[in-house]
Design a binder for these strands. Structure first.
Lengths: 175, 175
DNA sequence: GTGAACATGTAAATTGTTACATGATTAC
DNA sequence: GTAATCATGTAACAATTTACATGTTCAC
């Protein structure tokens, strides 16, 4: 889902400032999306130009807080976009690239990468576990449980095989 | 790992044409990387300009087959780059976005997305299982087993909870 | 000879990141 | 008053996708 559509989804819940949208993505959607301000504000600008969202005039200066709200056309545009979703996922891992070519690397560097990956996954899992599950919709809970099961699979694998691979790599190298 | 570094890694194994590099990424590195020709050829062009790879002259036309090979400076550049790797991963899921906002969606559309995701994961797993594991290095095998454990976790989750969520969504909606 | 697979490349558009620049509001 | 956080935005750059354009080699 592109950022623009995501903004429409979030603004369907309630009017929000760009800053608040960023906060929602960072806090609640982190397990499947991310967005920087440099991508967010231009996206909101385009949505406004297209008439899909509006900012009720508050009479203040140009840099003042802007509550964006979705318009009627914005809602129907969103419905149209949601019906065209492909559900694709994109995954790219520098960690696995490094392991794939680890024969060119220092074994200590490989160990550092594994430990780093493990600690990243644990942190994401901690974050997911801290989310307010009971206050969520069924769909939202589903995404948290899904992400949790993937994170746990990664952690289990790295805890088990992560140790073993270093020994195997060493043996392969000096056999 | 950016595409440019990946090319250096692959060319470390053997001289290759751009087409062959594309094939290697598509067949063997699919579980953590992807690259289109439109990204690949410009990247190879820059590596050549920088002197990290070369194309031994074959005296033929401009569009003829070019075997790229890594140079001595290319090898040391690669070592430098490998030591600077962060091991970061990026994941973005339109599937989870859709589920997160599934309250705005048609339940049939949600079911279609779940089935599609399930079949995608099964296909990736089939592909991973078809890889020539015994011919690989330890590091390469590690990446395959890692990806396999993640794919299986996703499949298990979707097979179990994927069915249940549709009922839960329906109940939430019409309660 | 013709179609499939092999092979190289460019151009436009999209999408996003990082860094920068600025100002408002609130708590202490 | 001052630091932290809230808040909006731009500009330069980087990476990538998609579509296009072209040519080669080989099996049948």
């Amino acid at each position: 889902m592109n950022l623009s559509t995501l903004c429409l989804c979030l603004l369907c819940e309630a009017p929000m400032t760009g800053y608040e949208i960023h906060g929602r993505i960072w806090n609640d959607l982190r397990h499947f999306q991310h967005a920087s301000f440099g991508a967010l504000y231009p996206a909101l600008g385009k949505l406004k130009t297209a008439g899909f969202i509006s900012t009720p005039p508050t009479g203040s200066s140009a840099l003042a807080k802007k509550k964006f709200q979705i318009t009627v056309t914005g809602r129907s545009e969103l419905m149209a976009r949601l019906s065209r979703l492909s559900g694709a996922e994109s995954y790219r891992s520098e960690f696995l690239s490094a392991l794939y070519f680890s024969n060119h690397m220092d074994l200590d560097a490989v160990e550092t990468l594994i430990n780093q990956r493990l600690s990243d996954h644990r942190q994401i899992r901690r974050h997911l576990r801290g989310l307010p599950i009971p206050a969520m919709t069924e769909g939202q809970r589903f995404t948290v449980r899904y992400a949790l099961s993937i994170q746990s699979a990664a952690i289990d694998f790295l805890e088990g095989e992560g140790r073993a691979i270093l020994a195997a790599l060493k043996q392969e190298r000096y056999q």
